[in-house]
Computed example of a mutant assay.
Amino acid sequence: MTMEFPEPTVPAAGRAEVFLRYLDHFREMVLAKVAALPEDELRRSRLPSGWTPLELIKHLRHVELRWIEWGFQGREVAEPWGDQRGDRWHVAPDETRDTLVTALRAQGVHTASVIAGTDLATVGVPGPRWEGAEPPPLERVLFHLLQEYARHLGHLDIVTELAGGPIGE
């Protein structure tokens, strides 16, 4: 499913709705680009850094997990860095496009429920995510998530083009 870009001229009920629209848009664009890639490109890297499209999906799921659940909500999370092995992103051989897409979408549903039920000025719960710093308000966390998605979608645009997939939005 691809979504139209959330143009600034489309009315929104408030800032929370704007964040939701952009996060949903960027998440679905990442997933649409990965869905358009042939199976043999999913675990292949076309970049010197070595990351793969499947690793990117898993990374983005963990980014939301770390910033929203482990960070903002202060929940105990078994493997907040479960997208990494050493200094690299990692996807196990038994993890598939379908399971990773399902996990990312489920994380997005959780993020949306937090945004819908929380004032943007609410400060996060103190915990290990903040490494001793004062927790930020939800709005700052969401700005960070948006830049993560936008940046990684741009990276994926290049990888998808190199792999012969669709280009542009």
Rank of each mutant, 00 (worst) to 15 (best):
V77N: 03
A133K: 14
A112G: 04
R151L: 12
P8N: 10
L42A: 13
H59F: 08
E69P: 00
I115E: 01
D157V: 11
T102E: 15
L20F: 01
V30H: 08
H144T: 08
V141Y: 06
E79S: 13
K58E: 09
L153V: 15
W89N: 06
L60G: 04
T102A: 15
H110W: 06
L162M: 15
T99L: 07
V123D: 01
D40Y: 04
M3H: 03
W67Q: 07
A16S: 15
D87S: 11
V101A: 14
F143G: 10
T102G: 05
T160Y: 04
R21Q: 13
E28R: 14
D157L: 12
P126Q: 06
P11V: 13
H90E: 05
A112W: 02
W81Q: 12
G127I: 13
A106I: 03
A106N: 10
P136V: 11
T118F: 00
V91Y: 03
A121V: 00
E28A: 15
V91I: 07
W89G: 02
E169S: 13
E17W: 00
P93L: 07
G86C: 12
H59D: 07
G74C: 08
G71V: 13
A133M: 09
H110E: 10
L56N: 06
A116L: 09
P80I: 07
E131Q: 12
R66M: 13
L37I: 04
P135G: 07
G165I: 11
R85Y: 01
E79Q: 12
K58D: 11
R61H: 11
F72E: 10
T52K: 06
H110Y: 15
Q107H: 02
A16E: 15
E76I: 04
L142S: 11
L138R: 04
L153H: 14
V77Y: 08
L145R: 04
L142I: 09
L146Q: 09
D24G: 14
L120V: 00
W81L: 12
V141R: 11
R75P: 01
P38C: 02
T9Q: 12
P137K: 06
P80W: 10
V63D: 03
T99W: 02
R15C: 00
V159A: 12
E131A: 12
G14W: 03
E64G: 09
R75W: 08
L104P: 04
A150M: 10
E69K: 14
P53S: 07
D94T: 08
V30C: 06
W67H: 13
R75Y: 05
P136Y: 02
L42Y: 11
W89P: 00
L162G: 11
L142F: 11
A106W: 03
V109I: 13
F26D: 02
V101Y: 05
R151E: 07
W81Y: 10
H90M: 03
E4F: 05
P48W: 05
F26R: 00
P48E: 10
P137Y: 01
E95H: 02
R27S: 06
E131V: 11
L104E: 03
V114W: 01
R129H: 15
Q84H: 11
